[in-house]
Lab assay of single mutants.
Amino acid sequence: WKVTVKGVEYTFDNPEEAKKFAEELAKKKGGQIHYKDGEFQVH
């Protein structure tokens, strides 16, 4: 499971962890999460 933040990729074994990480980042940066092709992208 991948989380991509401004072109930087983070990989997680667990989808729950990936989702949590993406949500935290989106909150911090005031961005939005897009889920696409099996990965979370924070913009």
Rank of each mutant, 00 (worst) to 15 (best):
F21R: 01
Y10A: 01
H43K: 09
E24V: 07
V5M: 15
F21H: 02
G38I: 03
D13S: 11
E23Q: 08
E24A: 11
H43L: 14
D13K: 09
K19N: 05
T11V: 14
K19Q: 12
K6V: 12
K36M: 12
F21W: 08
V5N: 10
I33N: 03
D37P: 10
G38N: 12
G7A: 04
G30Y: 05
F21V: 02
Y10N: 00
Q41K: 09
F40K: 02
K19G: 06
W1T: 07
H34T: 15
Q32N: 09
A18E: 00
V3Q: 00
Y10E: 01
E16S: 10
G31K: 01
D13E: 09
G38R: 13
Q32Y: 15
A22N: 01
D13I: 07
K36Q: 12
Y10Q: 01
P15T: 05
K20G: 07
I33E: 03
K27H: 13
K36E: 10
D13C: 02
G31Q: 06
D13F: 07
Q32A: 10
N14M: 05
V5L: 12
H34Y: 14
H43T: 14
V8K: 13
K27I: 12
T4F: 07
H43G: 08
K29Y: 15
Q32W: 15
T11F: 15
V3H: 01
T4K: 07
V5P: 00
V8P: 00
F40D: 03
K19M: 12
E16L: 11
K2H: 06
T4A: 04
P15Q: 14
E9F: 09
L25F: 08
A26G: 02
F12N: 00
K28D: 14
K28N: 13
K29C: 13
L25W: 12
E24L: 10
P15D: 05
A18W: 02
Q41Y: 09
T11N: 12
H34A: 11
W1G: 02
G38H: 14
E16F: 11
G30K: 07
G30S: 03
D37I: 01
K29D: 15
V5D: 14
P15M: 15
L25G: 02
K28G: 09
V42F: 05
V42N: 03
D13M: 08
V42G: 03
E9I: 13
Y35S: 03
Q41W: 09
G38S: 05
V42C: 02
D37R: 01
A18L: 03
A22S: 04
T11R: 13
E17T: 10
K27W: 10
G30E: 05
D13Y: 07
G31Y: 14
K2D: 01
K20P: 00
H34S: 14
K28L: 14
V42E: 03
F21K: 02
P15K: 15
E17G: 06
H43I: 15
F21D: 00
E24S: 08
Q32L: 11
E23P: 00
D13Q: 09
Q41M: 11
G31I: 05
E9S: 14
V3E: 01
Q41V: 13
E9P: 03
A22M: 04
W1M: 04
A26M: 05
E9N: 07
K36F: 12
E39S: 07
Y35D: 04
Y35R: 01
P15F: 15
K27A: 14
E39G: 06
K27S: 13
E24W: 13
G30C: 08
E39Q: 09
K20I: 11
D13H: 09
K20S: 11
I33G: 03
Q32H: 14
Y10T: 03
N14E: 07
A26Q: 06
E39N: 11
K36D: 06
K6Y: 15
F21G: 00
G31E: 07
E16V: 11
K2N: 04
P15A: 13
T11H: 14
G31N: 06
F21A: 02
Q41C: 08
G30H: 07
G38P: 05
Y35G: 04
K29A: 15
A26N: 02
G7K: 02
L25N: 04
E39T: 10
V5E: 14
G30F: 05
G31M: 12
H34F: 14
L25D: 03
E24D: 12
H43M: 13
E23C: 10
E17L: 09
K29H: 15
G7C: 05
Q41I: 14
H43V: 15
K29T: 15
A26S: 06
P15C: 14
D13L: 08
A18M: 04
K36Y: 11
T11Y: 15
Y10R: 02
E16K: 10
